[in-house]
């Protein structure tokens, strides 16, 4: 018993779970006893009850699917384009000289500021959301890919050259792997940004998706429970996918890069 107690005390997971459950429990008690107004500040359990009364699992699932579809497609293409352009700009001097100033000019503009322009260019439908999420992934990835390519240890390139590599084989077999840790950092940042942008885009201009679900609930004067469930769902989704990307990165480069 004593040994078990010690094991639990030493486990970060157990201690952290106590902290998280403690917080939820306090909120729960405060809402149930009327210490805070349960209509305005419903605890997670109350919120789920309230949401269940207003929404079917199917509706939530459909909105969730739309959000996921948007963020995966926009992020996938944005990150790929960022990686390709960043690597090319770092490797080919002329291309870098042309691409860099344009990227640096546009990079400080937060992706959300593109929303109005995206609507002007692509209308209110899916393409405009896709474009904004694309940008959210593109800029962090392109910057880190370029930075990674420019900070490769020249010794590695020389070593590759002495073994007869040059041109494209040198790029793919030495330079890109050497830049991979920077690239991975950019991908992770880009994912977080894409996700934040997704929610904002759905709040401002959409007719489905989790962001739409919660803003619509508030515009139609629905229940706070639905909004809270939506927020928790979005947070959870972000947490899980970010952890998945972290784990994938670790498998990819963890053994030799050590993070």
């Amino acid at each position: 018993m004593n040994a078990l107690a010690r094991r639990l005390r030493d486990s970060d997971l157990a201690v952290g779970a106590v902290g998280a459950f403690g917080l939820v429990a306090i909120w729960e008690i405060a809402a149930r006893t009327g210490l805070v107004d349960p209509q305005l500040f419903p605890s997670p359990l109350l919120a789920i009850e309230m949401a269940a009364a207003r929404l079917t699992a199917e509706t939530v699932g459909e909105n969730l699917a739309w959000s996921l579809f948007r963020v995966f497609s926009g992020f996938g293409l944005g990150a790929s384009a960022g990686a390709v352009i960043g690597i090319a700009a770092g490797w080919y001097r002329t291309f870098g000289m042309i691409a860099r100033p344009l990227i640096e000019l546009l990079r400080p503009i937060p992706p959300l500021a593109w929303i109005p322009l995206a609507i002007i260019w692509f209308g209110l439908g899916e393409p405009s959301k896709f474009f904004i999420i694309f940008l959210g992934a593109f800029f962090p990835v392109v910057t880190s890919a370029y930075h990674g390519m420019r900070s490769i240890d020249p010794m590695l390139l020389r070593a590759g050259q002495t073994m007869g590599l040059g041109g494209v084989p040198l790029l793919f077999r030495v330079a890109v792997p050497a830049a991979a840790p920077d690239l991975a950092t950019g991908v992770r940042i880009g994912w977080g940004l894409s996700f934040g942008v997704l929610v904002a885009a759905e709040l401002v201009a959409a007719d489905r998706g989790l962001g739409y679900m919660i803003i619509n609930e508030r515009n139609t004067g629905g229940s706070v429970g639905v909004i809270i469930v939506g927020i928790l769902l979005i947070g959870l989704l972000n947490l899980v996918t970010d952890a998945a990307i972290g784990a994938a990165t670790k498998r990819w480069i963890g053994r030799w890069h050590g993070t």
Binding site: A17, A20, A200, G211, I214, V224, L236, N238, L239
Partner: peptide, 18 residues
């Protein structure tokens, strides 16, 4: 730690309606 990590993962703008 878990509370901090979770609160940080909540996209800030998703709180807007609330």
């Amino acid at each position: 730690a878990p509370v901090v990590v979770f609160c940080r993962s909540i996209a800030t703008l998703s709180l807007l309606p609330l």
